[in-house]
């Protein structure tokens, strides 16, 4: 989205004030009781109000899946589109109207299977959109088939003998497409979710946030390693900007770079000065990618936070700059000039 948060704070008093209620539509929310989607919806509604956003300047675009019902529950402009295509549609909205705050709501099946192509291209173009990828490692709306993020061996409706598909790592994929902002968070951690979404939304260009989202019906607790009270302190690897990457109840584990450039986890005591200091603003996504390889599914130590946040030219700016430059150079086009631009002859 295009507005810098600090500017928002400065002009806060003059802006029309909208409350969380103003971002909440009158539609009855139809997710299963206990679904992780509720927490994300409430967080986004509150966040937009807190940031002083205007519902009329905000657009939510979604594809198909449980999470893609999201726009119906936001009292903003919105399109509930077709399976996988939300990044493409959002690209059109943002290109036509760069001043709008455009969000994409998608899931692991929507974004990574049927819509994988659109996702990587929206990311590499650096369109100014904020993409929330609700990852629950399952197809919920179609009632429980394995998804492109389900781990090998996952037993679901269509994989009675276990999945034989190697899963995608959404953060690695986004970094491979050189997305300028990539982060990971969890539906149940309200503070972390708010912090990450605020940063993602403030970012100019394409931002991808993977959110582990619990599907109570078809894949309950798939991320328990990083969400359960007892295990999360062991497994969450918090990525804090400018700090050495250590984790565990006493910070007893650390992330260091191996000889081949990959990352590995070692006891902090043995790490010495080799502990990687987290810097998401590195121009090359290489280090961020290496960090993303520390986990594949949230079953063990898993990095959470902002992997990458760099400033790059934004697609919608470039597109509209070319139009402005053409008008500045040639003057606004006149139809008469266009029609007579070829070899014209007169018949009398």
């Amino acid at each position: 989205m295009s507005t810098d948060t600090t500017v928002d704070q400065a002009t806060h008093d003059e802006l029309p004030q909208f409350s969380k209620k103003d971002f909440t539509s009158d539609q009855e929310v139809r997710w299963c009781p206990g679904c992780g989607d509720y927490a994300i919806l409430a967080t986004v509604q509150k966040l937009l109000a807190d940031l002083g956003r205007d519902p009329s300047e905000t657009v939510f675009v979604s594809g198909i899946g449980c999470s893609s019902r999201f726009p119906y529950y936001m009292d903003t402009y919105g399109i509930h589109s077709i399976h996988g295509r939300a990044p493409a549609i959002a690209t059109g909205v943002a290109s036509a109207r760069p001043e709008l705050d455009v969000w994409v709501i998608t899931g692991d099946g929507d974004a990574l299977s049927i819509g994988g192509n659109h996702l990587i291209h929206a990311l590499r173009r650096n369109v100014d959109i904020t993409i929330l990828l609700f990852n629950n490692e399952i197809y919920g709306l179609t009632k429980g088939q394995y998804s492109p993020t389900s781990p090998l061996g996952a037993v679901h409706k269509s994989t009675p003998m276990g999945s034989i598909d190697r899963p995608l790592n959404p953060v690695s994929l986004a970094l491979g497409a050189e997305a300028t902002f990539v982060a990971r968070t969890i539906d149940t951690d309200r503070n972390h979710l708010t912090e990450i979404l605020t940063a993602a939304n403030a970012h100019r260009g394409a931002a991808l946030v993977e959110i582990y989202q619990n599907c109570v019906v078809f894949n309950d607790d798939f991320a328990h390693a990083v969400t359960d009270r007892e295990t999360k302190v062991i497994n969450q690897i918090p990525l804090r900007i400018g700090e050495p990457i250590v984790f565990g109840p006493e910070g007893e584990k650390a992330v260091v770079a191996d000889d081949d450039g990959s990352m590995m986890i070692v006891p902090t005591a043995e790490a010495g000065d080799r502990i990687v200091v987290h810097d998401p603003t590195r121009t090359e996504p290489t280090t961020a990618f290496a960090l993303s390889r520390l986990s594949h599914n949230p079953t063990g130590p898993t990095p959470l936070g902002i992997f990458r946040a760099v400033e790059q030219p934004v697609y919608d700016d470039l597109l509209n700059d070319q139009v402005e430059a053409a008008v500045a150079e040639r003057g606004r086009g006149r139809l008469e000039d266009l029609l007579t631009s070829g070899n014209v002859w007169h018949v009398t």
Partner: peptide, 22 residues
């Protein structure tokens, strides 16, 4: 472009119409 035309060479046919819908 000096007529305000924005052209978008999409990644595929579906994105081309998708972006147009947006």
């Amino acid at each position: 472009k000096h007529f305000g035309v924005r052209t978008f060479q999409a990644e595929d046919e579906i994105a081309a119409i998708g972006a147009a819908i947006g």
